[in-house]
Design a protein around this nucleic acid. Structure first.
Lengths: 230, 230
DNA sequence: CATTATTTTTAGAATAGCCTAAACTACTAC
DNA sequence: GTAGTAGTTTAGGCTATTCTAAAAATAATG
């Protein structure tokens, strides 16, 4: 290791890295090299290297062998990138006729190419939305996130009415599978039966009964209907 | 020179190179290294290098010390890139409220990030236009270009009515200057007087008399009004 | 607690895209 | 037709981002 220059916050790979750390941080305290390598589809050594350079840039706090965590600056940057991504996704569906399963890859490219001017225009045109086309929260320009209380179908009580609030996958096949069964944002759902040992669920969606596998159901989030007492 | 790998046609710099060669080819038989270096704002040696790699990829025909010319494949690729660029420019103005002088830089980035799916969506939404927001021809998917017979104000006969058909600049200052004087696409114009020795022109635009410098006028193209016999 | 297995890091290397400085061509003008 | 200048190319280098193979550290297991 000769010298090492700090990462520049506006590079594509740095932005992808920030996003990945942010996402993984919601599930784990510190984010491991391997987890990042997996999510970013790059090798572990590349992650280590990036972690070093991003620490120099004060975007993450990195401890050898103990993973990474976003600094305050890092989190701010991450939220900016996520805001871009999600505004673009929503726009693609709303104004350009994209299907939900098509938007992720396109937005992934666009988010790095687009200017602040462009993002502002989208936000304006979409009337400053807080949820994207997957139902995920779009952070505000100031980084604020309007979170809701969401549940996984696999744990939501049987017999209670709820609405589909989020389809948490970027995998086109999974999204198509779910939408094919009737899971679209805002659909009314009610769990009818649940098999033990991670078995399938029977669900009533907008009046139609369907079955869903346990695994694939983890990509759905529901929100209890307002007014429907617990 | 050890070995040299061919250029990949989908890289950003290759696409910029193709566009630059295409543009310069309209004015000169073979396109010189220096002309390209100038247009692309990179050094001459970088151009030479790229020329080599693009010849291996059969995108240009390059002769040492005698510049470059697009092959058939190269021209096809160039037109694809230009189509993207211009569709995006038009879209930014039409649907996202951009001013003309803002679109070039944005489109320059977007054209490399956007998928064919995206371009198809734009073309559809804009109803398959053949002219962009500058008034430049948008090549069709098959590469066809619907050219018109255009003239420079500096050479157009005095006293003949015409319409502004194209504002050929990507320089925001120049565009703002011209639009400030009333030169917008479709405006009626008539040359009133012309000073010798590359002097300024007096022009009647939509009923208003303005003066324009010779140099800046070269960025305007006009088209003679139909029906107005010569 | 020692050994094994897993995870992470170091070392060394490749590629695309750029650069500067120096060598070389080609054209132009006497 | 040769000298000088303008334009081009070669040589050698640098950075960001990635990789593989091997070494080192941590975590898991008996």
């Amino acid at each position: 290791m000769v010298t090492m220059r700090p990462a520049t916050a506006d590079s594509q790979s740095v932005q992808d890295f920030l996003k990945a750390v942010y996402t993984l941080q919601q599930k784990m305290e510190r984010v491991s090299t391997n987890a990042l390598a997996e999510m970013l589809s790059i090798s572990a050594p590349s992650v280590t290297d990036m972690a070093h350079r991003m620490m120099l840039a004060e975007l993450v706090n990195y401890e050898k062998y103990h993973g990474v965590r976003l600094t305050e600056t890092g989190e701010r940057e991450a939220l900016r990138v996520i805001r871009r991504h999600r505004l673009i996704e929503l726009y693609l569906v709303t104004d350009l006729g994209y299907a939900l399963h098509e938007v992720h890859d396109e937005a992934e490219q666009l988010e790095h190419a687009v200017s602040d001017r462009f993002i502002a225009a989208l936000a304006e045109k979409l009337d400053h939305p807080t949820l994207d086309s997957h139902g995920e929260v779009i952070p505000g320009i100031d980084g604020t996130c309007h979170y809701r209380e969401l549940h996984t179908p696999s744990q939501f009580p049987i017999g209670i009415k709820a609405k589909v609030a989020c389809l948490n996958s970027n995998n086109p096949e999974i999204l198509q599978h779910l939408m094919g069964k009737g899971f679209t944002l805002g659909s009314q759902v009610e769990i009818i039966t649940r098999e033990p040992f991670e078995g399938p669920l029977t669900v009533l969606i907008d009046g139609k009964t369907v079955m869903v596998g346990y695994t694939v159901a983890t990509y759905i989030s529901v929100e209890q209907d307002k007014g429907a007492g617990k």
